[in-house]
């Protein structure tokens, strides 16, 4: 046994995935640093209008150029992403809490309650959620919170479905029967035995929801229904730059677009890796 042990055949899942994780993590760290530090380090006014320098192409002074009223596109991108991330994270959390509560209640109760709750979910799902979201923001004055509410109230449906399905599959396991036989109440079975099993799924759903919520916010702003037009948000920026794009000035559209796409891809990619990890079939560390 003193001989050098030979390596077993290794599974080749490793390298590409590790690269993806590192790149995504780097992007997210950079994004977070930018949105948190730039406003502190460079307390510039992102709304400062400078008509003398309008629509400058990217240069040393303005790396991303300036927009049609001379505002710095880089600075506005950072502020816009800040707002979009805030809206995205808060809205995704709200949607997840609602979805988990509804899904867990339906899944734990089962039977008639479950059927009724899920029909309500179906009805909500049958309305395009952008339409529903527009309806909600239209009831309030433009601002951050109506947008959060609009996204949160329209995006819990899929989480509710995931959580409920997971609860139902756990409910039929023998360990739930054992708990019932051991005198556990409905509440205890739900909270102590079922819910902990679905939380990783719900957490994953929340992370996957963040990019979705960011895009939703941008879509609402693009339609002029989201944040007030002077607030820098990625959707607002793309919307107001539409005219200049036709004149051949690409930078006021391209950079906010990239700021929208790249961080959301990074989040989605990390969430994908997480999903693989919590999938029990892939957790075969050792089979004895």
């Amino acid at each position: 046994m003193s001989a050098v042990l030979k390596g077993g055949p290794t599974l080749r899942a490793g390298r590409g995935r590790r690269l993806r994780v590192r790149a995504s993590a780097a992007v997210l760290v950079a994004v977070l640093a930018a949105v948190l530090l730039v406003p502190l380090l460079f307390p510039l006014d992102e709304q400062a209008v400078d008509m003398a320098n309008k629509l400058h192409a990217p240069s040393a002074a303005h790396p991303f150029g300036t927009d049609d009223v001379g505002r710095d596109v880089l600075l506005r991108c950072v502020y816009g992403l800040r707002v979009s991330l805030l809206v995205g994270v808060v809205a995704a959390l709200a949607a997840t809490v609602i979805g988990t509560a509804v899904g867990a209640a339906a899944g734990a109760a089962g039977g008639r309650t479950d059927r009724m709750v899920m029909r309500v979910v179906d009805v909500f799902s049958s309305v395009p959620h952008l339409l529903l979201g527009i309806f909600i923001v239209a009831m309030f004055r433009p601002g951050v919170w109506p947008v959060v509410a609009s996204v949160g109230l329209t995006h819990w449906l899929s989480t509710a479905r995931i959580v409920r399905a997971e609860m139902l599959s756990l409910r039929s396991r023998d360990f739930v029967d054992a708990a019932v036989s051991g005198g556990a109440s409905r509440w205890r079975v739900a909270v102590r035995h079922l819910l902990p099993g679905v939380l990783p799924q719900a957490g994953l759903a929340a992370v996957l929801m963040v990019p979705h919520a960011i895009w939703h916010e941008s879509a609402l702003s693009f339609l002029g229904l989201g944040l007030p037009t002077h607030r820098a948000s990625l959707g607002n920026m793309i919307q107001s730059a539409r005219g200049t794009l036709l004149a051949g000035d690409w930078w006021p559209t391209l950079f906010p677009g990239l700021f929208l796409i790249i961080p959301t891809l990074a989040i989605a990619s990390l969430a994908g890796v997480w999903r693989e990890r919590i999938n029990p079939r892939r957790r075969s560390e050792l089979m004895l």
Partner: peptide, 24 residues
Amino acid sequence: RHRAPRAQRTAVGVVFQQPRLAAD
């Protein structure tokens, strides 16, 4: 199940076939 009074439910102890499925 839950509709059985706790005293009746707990009067019967159960052991299942597959311990992996029967353990949280």
